[in-house]
Amino acid sequence: MLDRTADEANAWMARVAKGDRQALEMLFRSEAPRMMAVSRRIVRRTDLAEEVVQESFVTAWQRAAQFDPERGNARAWLTTIVRNRSLNMLRDGARVDHHDGETLEALGDRVGDAHDAYDRLPDRDALKACLSRLDETKRRSILLCYVVGMSHGEVAAKLDAPLGTVKAWIRRGMSALQECMA
């Protein structure tokens, strides 16, 4: 089922690269709900996630010829675009922080979202098994970066640990994670 969706997405991307707008719309109908969700975990606000998704699909249209199915499926390619755009928006503090005086922290529970993502990983997934073998501090640091887009500094503040320590946790944690999944 997942594989069929991935194949479909690849076929649509091949048509998008030839200038087929309908194929882009099919891709949008199929992938936008997931893209919205991935983005909103990072940018926190629905309106900003909408903007990210809009920009990402325009970029996918513009750069369709650069999508290489040999490298992976179209969904992964789109996810990378969405993640990078979301991170850019998040780091551009002027866009996210100062809206109506709201702060990121007021916009939902970032720590909770990061933890939920881990909880929702299927137990049979190698990533779940390997993350579960890490010390809690390493696991939390990695999840806070990947799932909600925290910087090293934000993780350090959140976990009340020195920046250098957090960087070392992440480095060692990611190294152990990759060894475990190899």
């Binding site: 719309e25 709900p33 909408e50 998704v53 809009q54 249209w61 513009q62 750069r63 990983l121 779940k128």
Partner: peptide, 30 residues
């Protein structure tokens, strides 16, 4: 990427595709 798959799909606003489509005309493909 398994972590991205844990995000629960969200409602997409009705007009979003129309906004994207409007921009395609002014966006040449590379």
């Amino acid at each position: 990427s398994a972590l991205d798959d844990t995000a629960l799909p969200e409602a997409v606003p009705e007009g979003l595709w129309a906004q994207i489509e409007t921009r395609l005309g002014a966006t040449p493909q590379l």
